[in-house]
């Protein structure tokens, strides 16, 4: 299921590029960061590692989109 979440995030980013709408990248980066935070909590709680933790790398993207979308 974790892989499913990662797939959803990637597809959302992808759709953003295809339809050329920044809102998709913005939302995808939000979900990625939330997921990364959650996976960090999981790691701290039970020690299970997930690649979702790398979602923090979406943080700059989030800031970039935020600026461009001016919200």
């Amino acid at each position: 299921m974790n892989a499913f979440v990662l797939a959803v995030i990637s597809v959302t980013f992808l759709k953003g590029f295809i339809v050329k709408k920044r809102s998709y990248g913005f939302v995808a980066s939000i979900i990625a960061v939330i997921f990364a935070f959650l996976m960090t909590l999981v790691f701290l709680a039970v020690g299970t590692f997930s690649y979702g933790i790398f979602g923090y790398f979406a943080l700059p993207a989030f800031i970039w989109y935020r600026k461009r979308l001016a919200v």
């Binding site: 299921m1 974790n2 499913f4 979440v5 959803v8 995030i9 597809v11 959302t12 759709k15 709408k21 809102s23 998709y24 913005f26 939302v27 995808a28 979900i31 939330i34 997921f35 959650l38 979308l69 919200v71």
Partner: peptide
């Protein structure tokens, strides 16, 4: 902006399922 994506025709439901899983 958010509704654009959260209620997207194809991605809306997968995103919802992702949230539920989280």
């Amino acid at each position: 902006i958010l509704d654009d994506v959260f209620m997207d025709k194809h991605l809306g439901i997968p995103i919802f399922i992702a949230f539920m899983w989280m």
